[in-house]
Design a protein around this nucleic acid. Sequence first.
RNA 1: GUGAUUGUAGCUCAGUUGGUUAGAGCGCUGGAUUGUGGUUCCAGAGGUCGCCGGUUCGAGACCGGUCUUUCACCCCA
Length: 454
Amino acid sequence: MAQKPSIPKGTRDFSPAEMVKRNYIFDTVKSVFQKYGYLPIETPAMENLSTLLGKYGEEGDKLLFKILNSGDYLKKADSALLAEKASNKVITQLSEKGLRYDLTVPFARFVVQHQNEISFPFKRYQIQPVWRADRPQKGRYREFFQCDVDVVGSNALLNEVELIQIVDDVYRLLDINVVLKLNNRKVLSGIAEIIGAADQIVDITVAIDKLDKIGLDKVNEELASKGLSQEAIDTIQPIIMLSGTNAEKIVKLKEVLSKSEIGLKGVSELESVLNYLDVLKLDLEVELDLTLARGLNYYTGAIFEVKAKDVEIGSITGGGRYDDLTGIFGLKDVSGVGISFGADRIYDVMNQLELFPKADGAKTRALFVNFGGEDELYAMKTLADVRKAGVNAELFPDAAKMKKQMTYANRKEIPFVVLTGEVERKSGNVTLKNMETGEQSQLNLDELIKVISI
RNA sequence: GUGAUUGUAGCUCAGUUGGUUAGAGCGCUGGAUUGUGGUUCCAGAGGUCGCCGGUUCGAGACCGGUCUUUCACCCCA
């Protein structure tokens, strides 16, 4: 027991059955991305630590997996820092690489590095694992896949709209009921501005974001504890408690934010996006939600988040506009907007709701029983013809007992078993057994292919 | 990072106030049935009770530590 091998906390193995389901999600997402003109890229699992550090806030830095330098890494470290065990200061001397934390920052790095080969607007998607040194819990893993779509080099709000269309398409294809929550960082900045607390925008959004969980009183308490005056708190009450249709919310926001230039800009952006969406008549429910703040520091415009309606789990998709992400890497004035589908959470949702399609082309349709010798050769030849006809089929590798071979077929849920023994070989036919009904029949090759094809 | 929680056979779990050789169901292997699975019957294999240490005549059970599981907070996909 003790010697049983294991895998690191928060990581998982995926069985063949699970991979078939996961690939269904990846294939669906990919097909939608490509339909909108996005093309794939990949970046390395590890990045230079300097690329990653400082991009996700102080919390994010702690959650980065750092990779120890090769060789005698302790020798190069400052002995004074080592002695005082100053982990934070010493780490950059011990590690210069880290596992990627998301796909957006590596993408920004990619854009800057390859700026001369890229023509803008640049639309790419990226489906790869990311790693976070979080404590695992429900719907939270240390290694998980993100499916990112981003477009950079265009300020047009049409891009925001297109991403929402993609969300609509993906979740319609996957048959998951979702609600897309929409907000705009400029609106949040405007709110901070009108109450004269522009530098506390983060505190305010974090507090407002908790409305669902802790309730209005606690939010107000938290705002007060962050140093907001009672007057300021009173001013933003109507905003925190905003209700009605999206259009009604827009009207109210315009009133409240009438003295904030940036706030009005945000409202107008939201309005434009919603107007576009009206034309498209999506299935997707889009809800203007000011409590949606998102912690990531780099969003500057639209913010999206998608939640599954029928399962209690964190957001399954999230994203937004970031005006200056590439600026950190030295390329100014390239605005981008993107979203990320959380494949693992989508998997959990679909699994719980049993939304995965049953029939599957990936499975074996027929097992050829191996009788050895001449019969084995006859089976191989027939099998090759069946495969040429496009049917997934396999031959049991050993001339094992029939019972064992039948059990194998049964366990693998293979619907047909083909018997090609001495009798069949001499007649040039095969015996086909339907594993569900138990019926058997004598068929020639063409008839066989016809019956076992999907 | 904070606070809880879990760990006994491949899997799901029993195991009394500490007491002799740690159990069940399912699964697995073999046989009944040497060219027929899924049903039935019979037999069998399989455990250093997560790990390290402590208390005790005696620990799966009690204590400490550690790892692991799950969950909440934080944050997020």
